[in-house]
């Protein structure tokens, strides 16, 4: 890519839109994931008995559904990101590429 093309893309409002929207989205999802995971780790480190609380009459504790939920949430978050990036963000990228020609 020539320096001229670099400047052209950098000054393209669509490129600026793509970068700001995608980084905001990607960092937001990353932070959600990190907060969930480290909250879980902190509970294990400082308040393990909280995760050992019974959910009802039987032996089931809330730790188990919470653990399974973290696995499911991880998958759902990847789905949310892939869907938006493969649609909206890729369409923007394509427009930027087309305008460069």
């Amino acid at each position: 890519m020539t320096q001229e093309q670099v400047e052209q893309v950098k000054n393209n409002p669509k490129y600026q839109e793509l970068v700001s929207k995608r980084s905001a989205f990607a960092w937001m999802l990353s932070i959600i994931m990190l907060v969930i995971y480290y909250a879980f780790i902190m509970l294990i480190a400082f308040k393990p008995e909280l995760l050992g609380m019974k959910t009802g009459e039987g032996v089931m504790t809330i730790g188990i559904p919470i653990g399974i939920a973290i696995i499911v949430i991880s998958f759902v978050l990847t789905g949310i990101y892939a869907r938006r990036a493969n649609g909206e963000f890729d369409a923007l990228s394509q427009q930027i590429k087309d305008e460069l020609r």
Partner: peptide
């Protein structure tokens, strides 16, 4: 869970 949660981060970033 520790082994899994790296994956969403890899995807996002």
């Amino acid at each position: 869970i520790g082994f899994l949660v790296g994956w969403p981060i890899i995807l996002f970033l």
